[in-house]
Design a protein around this nucleic acid. Structure first.
Lengths: 110, 110
DNA sequence: GGGACTGTATGGTTCTCATCGAACACTTCG
DNA sequence: CGAAGTGTTCGATGAGAACCATACAGTCCC
C-alpha cells in the first residue's frame, strides 16, 4: 500500500447530505458546540486548531465535541503537522439545512 | 375573587420571543417532539387534544413533552371541556427563528 | 352524586451525555 | 534520542432527561 506523509488515523467525517435533521439539531443543541461553531465562523478557514478555542472544558471533552460536530457534517478537519486544523462547512451544511447555521450564528445571547 | 368558568390551572406558556436559540434547538432535538410538531402541523388549529397523537410513550411522558414544547414557544394550549387542545405557533415561532420550523417539517426521514 | 374521560403531579428507575484524569500516539524541534 | 506540544482513547463519575406506574384534579354526562 502507498505510503503517506502522516501515519496518523484520518478523522472520520460525515457529509451534511447523509445527516438527519435530528442529528443536526442534537449537535447544535449544546452551548459548548454552539460557541465552537461561532468562533469557527469568525475565523478564516483552516486557521484554527482544536486547542485554540476559548471553551471551559478540558481537552478530552473538547475532542468529543469535535467528534460530534464532524459526525453532523458541521466541521471538517485536516492534520497540519502536530495540529488538527478546522473548517466550518458553511455552504455544504447550508445546502442541506438552509438557514439553520445562519440562525445559530445570528443570535447574540445563548 | 372572581369566579371563572374553569377551575383548572391554565398552562404556562412562553412566547417565542423570550426563548433562546439553545432552548428552541433542545426542544426540537427529540424524535417524539418532532413527531408531535409534525402531526400538529398537519392538522387544523385547536383540533388536536394531547391524547390524540400517535407516539410510543405513556401519557405522563407525553404531558412532559408538551410542557417542553410550550416552554419553547412552539405550542399553545387551551382548555376545552375535559380536553386540552393544541395549536402550533407557526407564525410567531417563524418570526423569531426564521426557517427552523420549515426545516423540521420539510424533512421526511428522522 | 357517580362514573368515564383527560391531563397533571409525584416518586422512582433507567439511560444518555458531558465531563475529567490519566494513559497513549504522533509530530516537531533541540 | 529525548522533551515538548497536540489531540485521541479509555474508564469512571455525575447530572440531567426520558420514561413508567400510580395517584390526583378537573370536566362532562347519565
Amino acid at each position: 500500500m502507498a505510503d503517506r506523509t502522516s501515519h496518523r488515523a484520518a478523522p472520520v467525517h460525515s457529509h451534511p447530505d447523509e445527516v438527519s435533521i435530528l442529528t443536526a439539531l442534537t449537535a447544535l443543541a449544546d452551548p459548548v458546540r454552539i460557541q465552537l461553531v461561532r468562533e469557527l465562523a469568525g475565523s478564516a478557514e483552516w486557521t484554527r486548531a482544536c486547542g485554540s478555542f476559548d471553551v471551559p472544558v478540558g481537552k478530552a471533552a473538547l475532542s468529543h465535541h469535535f467528534g460530534v460536530l464532524r459526525a453532523a457534517g458541521l466541521v471538517e478537519q485536516r492534520d497540519e503537522g502536530p495540529k488538527r486544523v478546522n473548517r466550518l462547512r458553511r455552504e455544504e451544511f447550508d445546502a442541506r439545512f438552509p438557514g439553520l447555521l445562519d440562525l445559530v450564528l445570528r443570535e447574540d445571547a445563548c
